[in-house]
Design a protein around this nucleic acid. Structure first.
Lengths: 339, 339
DNA sequence: CTGAAAGCGCTTACAG
DNA sequence: CTGAAAGCGCTTACAG
């Protein structure tokens, strides 16, 4: 592989001149620039990333910490990953994908060894083990997901409280008086997946204020459990006329369950989910839904992270906590309650 | 950040001794080893990855080339990524995820700049643009997906021909005489997604041999198109008693379509898909399916790649082309044809 | 506008 | 068993 020394020799200049000709960091005579560029072309020269990182203390790599947990809905993660990866590339960064179960180990490895200039943490829990490590690291970090303590990091998340209120209010307005909310598996909450109860608590509070009933259950992330749990829910609460689904696997399982029970939407039951439009179209989820905007959140996180990395915002400048407002995508799965 | 020089000073030894004490590449007195380890702990020392890469010409990073194409089914990709990422980590490697649309550019960047020790290419097309670049690179590569020319690379794929035969034979044995095969979008074939026609051709040939009819169509990767196309298919061929689905989005859309038409499975229609079991359970896909084994393929590719990287197989040793045999996971969606 | 030199933080022959 | 030194391939003050 050609080095900058080879390029310099071929162009008949010093290595520093070759380097400057390529970086443009000082003025170079037209003739020299031409010779250097020619040498680069002839030799097929590309700078060695490790050497450059060593010299500049910049890797041009962003660490992406994602975890695929058994009881969580892995496919949803992909859309965040895409948003992060695409935005990073647009800004000149590559992505180091860290998926190991023990996120703390992975985070420590990539920051301590300086493999990355900054990190994006996905699926952040309320008391996330990774946060103390991130705060101790010398690289900046951006989170997707709201932790209890946001100091020292930039945070981006869907406004799950507003999402919960919106779901309830929408069905209340249509005349529903008894609703059920199907959340992610209870394990997710125990692990600190705050978004589950943030939506649930807000929905419960909205129901209380409106004076209507809301049954809240947790459901699994896989068949056959999730199907059975949906049947159980409908058996237990025959008066329910509206379903709120904050669980992608449950949304995917629902059509079959309703078919088996001979129920139609929205005639017998109104349904609102919480997932991205892309998701709905890919998996034929037929219900109106709160857009979860994963690509947008990933994009926002990377943008802010790169601003920190590149010093456009000083390290003392206040960190941001930014919520994306939920929007309802109408797929005509809600209507007046059956009587 | 502490360097090996800091460690050496704290331990009262030379930098080389500190380095050897950590790598274990030559014998070190117990006392020195203890002092070095203590210094490492006290200082929180971790080797700088860029410096190490420069000195050893090893990055301990594998490039993972994945592309999320508009007309393809992105979520399936995630399972390959997980297989690759987990196996890489087990073997001590990190993953650089390259998702840009122009895979050739990405591949060239990460190989030329020596950011990676080797690469895994996902979703390889028959005449894949990335292959000439990979062959010219100095790092080894492993593919998931079968190209026309396999020279210089290790190749892993599902045996799609066998999958096609298996689907047809299974329904033929049950007495079906008119089948339809729903493939990925035609764009995928045009782009060179050979697996689509490999399965389709083998299925057609099996049908020919058995003397039965097989209608083959392409369907979209999203709603609402895919739903409409399934309806059109069933309208056009009322005599069809068995459906073969080589298209995840179509498998997800089918329950709703059949429900709308009042058809039950397997009473009115037998159905066999081609997707992973994990996928079926996550998305409530109720049909028997050929296991596509994405995690296994990802794992095999990384294992072989690392063997090449680490010189366990010489560069002249023959490259492998290995097919995973399809296995049918029974979900009771097939039976005798309606009469 | 250009060059010689130092330095980034490691590893590893070479010498003892 | 240990140390001094060279070298990996860059970038960037420093000097002219």
């Amino acid at each position: 592989m050609a080095t900058i020394g080879d390029v310099a020799r071929a162009a008949g200049v010093s290595r520093s001149t070759a380097s400057y000709a390529l970086s443009g960091k000082r003025s170079i005579s037209a003739d020299v620039r031409r010779r250097v560029e020619e040498a680069v072309r002839d030799l097929g020269y590309t700078p060695n990333a490790g050497a450059r990182a060593l010299a500049t203390s910049q890797t041009m790599v962003i660490g992406l910490l994602a975890q695929f947990l058994e009881d969580e809905f892995a496919p949803a993660m992909l859309q965040y990953i895409q948003g992060v990866a695409n935005t990073a590339r647009e800004l000149g960064y590559d992505i180091l994908l860290v998926t190991e179960v023990d996120g703390t180990r992975g985070l420590r490895r990539v920051t301590d060894s300086r493999m990355v200039d900054g990190v994006v943490l996905l699926n952040v829990a309320e008391h996330d083990d990774r946060l103390p490590i991130l705060r101790a690291a010398s690289q900046p970090g951006a989170l997707v997901g709201l932790p209890a303590d946001c100091t020292g990091v930039d945070v981006f998340d869907l406004d799950f409280e507003e999402a919960g209120r919106l779901m309830v209010d929408d069905l209340h307005r249509l005349g529903h008086r008894e609703l059920a909310l199907v959340s992610q598996p209870e394990h997710v909450i125990e692990r600190g997946g705050a978004y589950v109860w943030r939506l649930q608590n807000a929905a419960a509070e909205a129901a209380r204020v409106r004076g209507i009933t809301l049954h809240a259950i947790f459901a699994s992330a896989h068949q056959p459990d999730v199907g059975r749990e949906l049947h159980d829910l409908l058996d237990a609460h025959p008066g329910v006329t509206g379903l709120l689904i904050n669980n992608e696997a449950a949304a995917a399982a629902l059509p079959t369950v309703l078919h088996a029970r001979g129920l139609s939407v929205p005639g017998d039951l109104s349904v609102i989910g919480r997932y991205s439009d892309e998701f709905a179209r890919t998996f034929s989820l037929p219900y109106s839904s709160i857009e979860s905007a994963p690509d947008r959140l990933g994009r926002m996180a990377v943008r802010q992270l790169v601003r920190r990395i590149e010093g456009e915002v000083g390290p003392d400048e206040p960190h941001v906590v930014r919520f994306v407002s939920p929007e309802l995508v109408d797929r005509r799965s809600t209507g007046a309650p059956r009587r």
